[in-house]
Design a protein around this nucleic acid. Structure first.
Lengths: 354, 354
DNA sequence: GCAAAAGTGTTTCCCCTACACCCATGG
DNA sequence: CCATGGGTGTAGGGGAAACACTTTTGC
């Protein structure tokens, strides 16, 4: 990309700044909100110290993760492009520029002890992960973690990434109310139940700032220890091992029709469908209990949000009950009126969901 | 400020970035929203070109203004501190760190043709100007301009500052609904009428994205051409001439009790009071007509927003009518429930206010 | 007395919620 | 026929807006 009239940089100001991007890639897997994290290599982790507000380098432990991100490498790279590139390089997750929403700049002195001064622009991507499966590059090992698990460990994220993650959740909730972003998590033809599930996950109390996140994280860890991971997770792990090297990933991204990729993608898709159909999985989910009838009324009332497909209906996930009306996405880019699912922002936390 | 464990910057990445801050300093003067702008020196202006999205250097005209701002000079300067410093250096406006709200990062390639690459972090300060009067430094000539006047001229602001200004107005409206920021524009003891006036200015249709701003700007220009500026503006100009040199301003800021300063400040305060009392000024204002009774009920219902001062009342500004109950600021930092003054965001633009 | 502005009371309307009820399916 | 979940109907409550009316001042 060329800049017209570009002149050499002014020498008057120190250019000892590093400009970085960080991406909070949020997704929903089996009814639980997950975030893409990477584990950087090296013996030291950069952990926030609450005593003086600085980030310091300490010996790395197994639980130190960071948000995917990195420096804006090229002078002519837009911030959004840098965020897309870093996200793909480190996690193989591909999203479009429209899926990235800027959270803001995080530029406090002392937020990165390694460089002279790092200004980080944070983005949030709320996107289904299964369409672009997950793999680690050779630079870092990456995975999706349950958000409650991340939040339950104080300073479980390096730098000021925990704060960024919390800001991202708040922002996603705002987007859910004012844009049709939830439809990305629904198939082309969906029922109101499926749409509502997305809202129920995002607005769960477990992600509130004052929630006792550890209670929820404990339940997930306990279940996983007893039952083990899901077949979907294992399939993704398999994909990850096969295509781990970064060069391979980049090659795949430019040639999407390789047999190996489509084979694994197909397998993942089948597993996903199975997992979706059978509700026998008892892994705890975090869903609030929104009233179905009134949620439906609100959603239908929004102009251009969803369109009814006349005559089409579909069985519910459990296989029983009345088949539900099927809808498709509307054309609206903004929800007017917004889909407000909780009147008071500071709602009391009730009992644990089943 | 020291950074613990600081190590030399990594040489792997190009550090050819400039990190800058821009401040949208908004205030209300005589019922009109104003923004602090500066006129940079030099023969060239950096004007946005809608044809390709780039900012180009063109010959400067008399109407080219920019938002106050500049590079983050020192490596150990926080972004907020840099914004405060630049705002003060260029406009002599002093605000506290709490008065600055970050808008986000504006970092597109090509937004500043002068440097290799400039990432700008924008802040908004919504603050009464009369408490910290206005003066230009020697680097730039600065003034407050009517926002409608700025918005009415396409590309009246350099770089992408027009977009930043529009984002700032949107943000201020959100702040007005959710925080007690409006109280900064009320005296220690105020009536609901005064509080309401602040909301009526900010939520005027003239500042909506799709408004025909030129209509409003034309009315102001016509009035000013006939009647001339206000005594307040002239007093501020006097202050500006006296204390223009930057060194003088800095000295004053560390020694606030100099006689000259207090004398001029007192004069300004008197003029302000006079101006406030007499509503004989016919300069057009931009105020929407919110229903007084229902606005009052909403404001009183918000917990901790305003406190009634029992037994105290005050005459209205026009000198007639029933004296109004006097209130003082409450302790709340957030408005719960928010003070929603317009149900539908996209309200139709009605007739011009008187 | 009249105009102007603050404040109160009241009516009406709308929307939201909760709940009851009916419907359609699988077993 | 029963359990299950989707969908509809509706009564009750709360709040907001509009409007009428009272109060208190200056002229």
């Amino acid at each position: 990309m060329d800049i017209p009239n570009a002149i050499p940089p002014t020498p008057d100001f120190p250019t000892n700044f590093h400009v970085a991007v960080d991406v909070v890639a949020l997704t929903i897997n089996r009814g639980v909100l997950q975030v893409a994290v990477v584990q950087r290599h090296g013996a030291k982790s950069c952990i926030f110290s609450a005593t003086d507000g600085y980030v310091r380098e300490v010996d790395r432990t197994a639980h130190d993760y960071a948000l995917p991100g990195g420096h804006v490498h090229w002078q002519n790279e837009n911030l959004v492009d840098a965020a897309l590139r870093e996200l793909f390089e480190e996690t193989a997750v591909e999203v479009s520029p429209n899926d990235l929403v800027q959270l803001g700049a995080y530029g406090d002195v002392g937020r990165d002890p390694r460089s002279g001064r790092t200004i980080s622009i944070a983005f949030v991507a709320f996107h289904p992960s299964f369409s672009s499966p997950f793999a680690g590059s050779d630079a870092v090992s990456a995975k999706f973690m349950d958000v409650v698990d991340v939040l339950a460990r104080p300073n479980g994220l390096e730098f000021d990434h925990e704060r960024i993650l919390r800001d991202a959740i708040t922002r996603v909730r705002e987007l859910m109310e004012r844009t049709p972003i939830a439809l990305k998590f629904c198939p082309d033809e969906f029922t109101l139940r499926e749409l509502r599930s997305v809202y129920e996950v995002i607005f769960h109390h477990a992600y509130n700032p004052d929630a006792n996140t550890n209670r929820y994280a404990e339940r997930l860890r306990k279940y996983d220890a007893e039952v083990g991971g899901s077949p979907l997770d294992e399939a993704i792990g398999e994909f990850s091992r096969k295509f781990a090297p970064l060069a391979e990933l980049n090659r795949l991204s430019s040639d999407r029709s390789t047999q190996r990729e489509t084979a694994v993608l197909g397998k993942i898709e089948k597993l996903l469908t199975d997992e979706y159909r059978r509700s026998s999985s008892n892994r705890p989910t975090f869903k609030r209990d929104f009233d179905p009838a009134n949620f439906a009324r609100k959603a239908i009332a929004i102009d251009g949000f969803i369109e009814e497909i006349p005559g089409e209906s579909r069985l519910s996930a459990s296989g029983t009950g009345k088949p539900a009306q099927v809808y498709r996405r509307g054309k609206a880019k903004k929800l007017d009126p917004p889909l407000i699912v909780e009147r008071k922002p500071g709602k009391p936390e009730k009992t644990l969901s089943k």
